[in-house]
Nucleic acid binder design. Structure first.
Length: 581
RNA sequence: GCACCCAUAGCUCAGCUGGAUAGAGUGUCGCCCUCCGAAGGCGAAGGUCGCAGGUUCGAAUCCUGCUGGGUGCACCA
């Protein structure tokens, strides 16, 4: 069940009709651009329930002044049955106050749509490919991957709620030099498993113990066949086995976070299928790839640097520092060379591409965007391609930085952190900051179960609602919609906040910013707690009022819908709504 | 040297893609437990939105230039 009409979009329609009426009456010239018109709640609730800037936006092109136009619009809008008051404020804002019945109707809508309230058809079923995580298959996930994983996953769900078909994709870099290093590392462990004393793990190999079981399995299966054999005999086999084992581990780590991808795309398979060659041929034919000399990198001295001729992509034409090689001097594809073909492949089965990358890859955004734009345009369909850069997370423990170093093998694994603080805390915390801002993740603060901690604050609001409903049930009072007209100002304030959820979800999806949902939930929880606390001093404001079954039923109905809304928001974020705390 | 991100209350951060008197938590100060949950509640103080220009009815938000912090700058991934 999809919700296509929200209260706000409904009023946008009414506004458009009012403008049409003014055009028909020749108060307003036809053909004005209405794109900048908004219908939203005023920042200050005392101004009313809805506000529009239409008069200010249209006054100038219409050759009139905002107040005059606003007066004409107010006259039209005041005719709507849902509008109890229409007024002009400030430079020409039109503020509308809506009848209680309108809000009560919205409350019923929440109840009717339940777990679908907030879904929309904004995306019109178009397919968005969201690529996230894509960690190299050389070891378990570490905390450096965590933020991108959570943000990507929440974004994917958010886009689904907004009416997109979503492909969650993981790009497996199983073709580069680092997986050869992985294979060699496993070979060392393999010799160790056969009884050889390998001593200290040599510099340049992965030292992690997690390779031991892979090596043991190879030793059990093949004995000492490859112990003294030349690398060419075992490299592919060991690499394949190791990558497969690493992917199993990675999927387990992701499962701890509640993340499951639809598609794992292999770089090796992409290359085997000749995709990079096809891309290169097209780019060469359009003079976007040429054989040239790679310039020396600037601002950084490299001892053994010497000029080499390589096939270069003209990324400098698109704002990059210099043109970038798509092949290495040994004839193999560079990461970039394979990656542009990979994105072109993704574009074949999607209407839009979104990549979630760590900020350390920011320098490669321009070249890949330029290459993808050229390739998809060349193929006759322009596919929007966005890269969302997720900034670094600094891990702290009681204010002290926790060191992360993959090379040394003693990095902080994602699994350890999830086991220590829990999936919900990790996910919610990662979503309480806009992705492009750096963040600290302090173990001590994050597990603190108090109001300081947004996760618990939101979950507590839900638990409180559930416990109240349980208590009501014990006393024979259940949510009922018979006396909703008895809900007063304080109760309807909750409904008004709740009613913003659909437009918030849409805006968050358009901006690709799932963190907005987290902040909305925090606000909603605050409003719920605040209403609750009215009951501390005024027993007549409690959800359950002993002498008044009808009123209690109505309030429990409201509570039930707020609870539903919290569940919906948490579902987008991938966080559990708890029954009790 | 260049590119990208960030800069908002003492601290940690929001600010709905240009709207009205810039918000929340925390900290500080003052009150409040016989209570459907006090790990709480109510209230107060606290701001040159880094700086300087520009765009327009209107700027924390957009543009330009600075300052400060972060990240990255071989054919690595």
């Amino acid at each position: 069940m999809l919700q296509t009409q929200t209260l706000y979009s409904e009023f946008s329609g009414y506004l458009a009709a009012a403008l049409d009426a003014l055009e028909a009456a020749v108060v307003l010239p036809g053909g004005l651009n209405r794109g900048a018109i908004t219908v939203e709640p005023p920042r200050d609730a005392s101004h009313g329930d809805l506000s529009t800037n239409a008069a200010m936006v249209l006054a100038k092109p219409a050759g009139t002044n905002p107040r005059a136009l606003a007066e004409a619009l107010v006259a039209e809008l005041a005719k709507l049955p849902a509008v109890t008051e229409a007024s002009i404020a400030g430079p020409g804002f039109i503020n509308l106050r809506l009848s209680d019945a309108t809000w009560i109707a919205e409350l019923r809508t929440i109840a009717a749509l339940a777990a679908s309230y907030g879904r929309s058809n904004l995306g019109g079923g178009s397919t968005v490919n969201v690529e996230y995580v894509s960690a190299n298959p050389t070891g378990p996930m570490h905390m450096g991957h965590c933020r991108g994983a959570v943000v990507g996953d929440a974004l994917a769900t958010l886009l689904k709620w907004s009416g997109h078909n979503v492909i969650r994709e993981y790009y497996v870099n199983d073709a580069g030099g680092q997986v050869d290093v992985l294979a060699r590392s496993v070979h060392m462990r393999y010799r160790e498993a056969l009884g050889e004393d390998v001593g200290e793990v040599p510099e340049g190999l992965y030292p992690g113990d997690y390779l031991v079981p892979v090596a043991q399995a190879l030793a059990a299966e093949f004995g000492d066949t490859y112990a003294a054999a030349p690398e060419a005999d075992w490299l592919v086999l060991f690499r394949t086995r190791a990558v497969a084992a690493m992917l199993v581990m990675i999927k387990e780590d992701l499962a701890l976070l509640g993340i499951e991808h639809d598609l794992f795309s292999s770089e090796a398979e992409l290359q085997a299928a000749g995709k990079p060659e096809q891309a290169e041929a097209w780019l060469r034919a359009h003079d976007l790839v040429y054989d040239g000399i790679l310039e020396a990198p600037k601002g950084k001295t490299i001892e053994d640097w010497e000029p080499v001729a390589l096939p270069l992509f003209r990324s400098a034409k698109f704002g990059d520092d210099q043109d970038r090689p798509i092949k290495k001097s040994d004839g193999k594809w560079t990461y970039f060379g394979a990656d542009l073909a990979y994105h072109f492949q993704k574009a074949e089965s999607a209407d839009a591409l979104v990549d979630i990358w760590g900020a350390d890859h920011a320098g490669t955004v321009k070249r890949i965007r330029a290459a993808v734009a050229a390739l998809t345009e060349g193929a006759g369909k322009q596919i929007p391609f966005e890269v969302k850069l997720v900034q670094m997370v600094q891990l702290l423990r009681n204010g002290e930085p926790v060191k992360m170093s993959k090379r040394s093998g003693n990095f902080v694994t994602l699994a350890d952190v999830v086991r220590e603080v829990g999936k919900d805390v990790v996910r919610f915390t990662m979503l309480t900051r806009k992705p492009e801002a750096q963040m600290d993740f302090d173990f001590a603060k994050v597990v603190e179960a108090s109001k300081d901690n947004p996760v618990f604050y939101v979950q507590y609001a839900h638990a409180r609602i559930r416990s109240t409903l349980r208590k009501g049930a014990v006393e024979g009072i259940v949510p009922a919609d018979a006396a909703l007209d008895r809900l007063g100002e304080e109760e309807l304030a909750l409904v008004k906040l709740a009613a913003q959820f659909p437009r918030l979800v849409e805006a968050a999806a358009v901006a690709r910013e799932p963190h907005r949902v987290a902040f909305f939930l925090y606000d909603l929880a605050a409003a719920l707690h605040s209403y609750w606390n009215l009951g501390n001093d005024k027993p007549e404001k409690r959800f359950i009022v002993a002498q008044d079954q009808a009123l209690s039923g109505a309030r429990l109905y409201l509570a039930a819908q707020i609870g539903q809304l919290i569940r919906n928001g948490l579902a987008i974020l991938g966080v559990e709504a708890v029954e009790e705390m």
